[in-house]
Each structure stands twice: as C-alpha cells, then as structure tokens.
C-alpha cells in the first residue's frame, strides 16, 4: 500500500520548474482597436501582451473557416484552438522582423488548414466515436435554435444544406472555395495560404464553385420531384 502511495505522488505531475516567457503583458486590452497592419508590429514588440488581441480579432473568422472545412462545430472549435496555439508557438520562434512582415490573415488560415488536414490524416487510423468528444452522445441542437422564427430557420436550413455540400467537396476545392468565397481572401492571399501558385488556386476555386453549382442543381431537381 505504501508503494501504491509512492506511485500516486509520482503521478501527481507537478509543474514547477518551467517558467517560460515571464514578460508581463502590456496594456493590449486597454489599447484601442488599431488597424490590422499595426498588429504584426505590436506582436513583434510584445508578443505576450498582444497575442490576446490576435485571438480576439481573428477567432470568429478562423472558427467559421474551420466549421466550413470540417462541417462539425466540435471539430471546428478544436481546429481553431489548435491553430491559435500553433500560431503562438511559431511566433515565439520567429525573429521580430519576420513577425513584422507577416500577412496575418493568410498565415492563420494556412495554419488552420494544416491542423484540419493533419486531423483528417490522424483520424483514418482512429475509430470514429459514436459519442461526442466529452464522452456524451452528440447533442441535439440547443433549445434556442429550435425556438427561432420560421424564416430564420429556413435561412439557417439553406445555409446548413450549402454548408454540408461545401463540406462534401474534395479537400483541394473545398479549401480554395471557402477561403475565396466564404472568407473573402484575395487571390494572392489565397495563394499564400494554400502554398500554391495563383493560377492553380484560381482554377481550383473555379472548379469548386462549378461542382457546388452542379450539386445544388441536382438537389433542386430531386427536390422538385425529378425522376
């Protein structure tokens, strides 16, 4: 029994020695919202003091992007979270001049895309769980979603349908279409995020939209009672 206790103490992994980045935060929260071009400058000067602003500025966009990539709110939350954590670790290693010249938006999308891709790869080996990530069965939509007025429900349904079609696109086209038309990136930003030439991403966006249009047309035809 004494041995069992010793094991207990060993398992109580206590964090004590690591004291990384003890620089204390500046006044990022107090500072007024600055234009996007100032954020890299702020990050280069005081990463720990400015990182919260980066998350606040980009969390909605990155989450929406992850949601369209993965098609699942739980997966999207994890992808967005992992992407920000990776971004922070990368910024810790970058010299200030590299941070200053960073195009944050495409850079963050690129990280999120890689996180999502790696998850898909990892998952091929894993058993797909029937339960949610917290061990409980995947939840029904929350009550407030059920209580929404009709028109909004319809709009949401159409959006969910389209979202499902987007999620079903082959990855190459999905990433390109989402970045271009959902997130509104410019083609040069798109090329940076995807690490491909502009010509290639243009072609992929184009082809992706055509696939979506075909899928929509097919569905409408089916909904209208086509044989």
């Amino acid at each position: 029994m004494a041995a069992e206790r010793a094991g207990e103490a060993g398992r109580a992994a206590v964090e004590g020695t690591a004291a990384p980045r003890d620089k204390r935060r500046g006044h990022a929260a107090i500072r007024n919202r600055q234009s996007a071009s100032e954020l890299p400058e702020a990050l280069a000067g005081d990463l720990d003091g400015s990182f919260e602003r980066l998350v606040r500025d980009f969390q909605d966009r990155l989450y929406a992007f992850a949601l369209r990539l993965t098609g699942s709110p739980q997966d999207a939350e994890e992808v967005a979270q992992d992407a920000f954590v990776r971004a922070y670790r990368a910024l810790c290693d970058y010299p200030p001049e590299r941070i200053r010249s960073l195009a944050l938006k495409p850079w963050l999308y690129q990280i999120a895309l890689n996180v999502a891709r790696n998850r898909v790869r990892g998952r091929r080996l894993a058993v797909v769980p029937l339960d949610g990530p917290d061990g409980r069965p995947r939840a029904d939509p929350p009550d407030d979603e059920r209580r929404r007025p009709e028109a909004a429900v319809e709009r949401a349904e159409r959006r969910d349908d389209l979202g499902a079609l987007v999620a079903a696109l082959p990855e190459r086209y999905r990433a390109a279409v989402v970045l271009r038309h959902v997130e509104g990136l410019r083609y040069d930003e798109l090329a940076a995020a995807l690490g491909q030439p502009v010509g290639t991403v243009k072609a992929n966006v184009h082809r992706g939209v055509r696939l979506l249009r075909e899928a929509l047309a097919e569905r409408e035809w089916r909904d209208e009672g086509g044989r």
């Binding site: 909605d60 709110p73 939350e77 959006r159 389209l162 279409v177 959902v182 979506l212």
Partner: peptide, 11 residues
Amino acid sequence: DLRALGAGVAP
C-alpha cells in the same frame, strides 16, 4: 450564399 456561411461567432 457562400459569403453568408462565413458569418460565424466563435464559441
């Protein structure tokens, strides 16, 4: 419609 998909609020 695609544009509207981007209107998301992070958890």
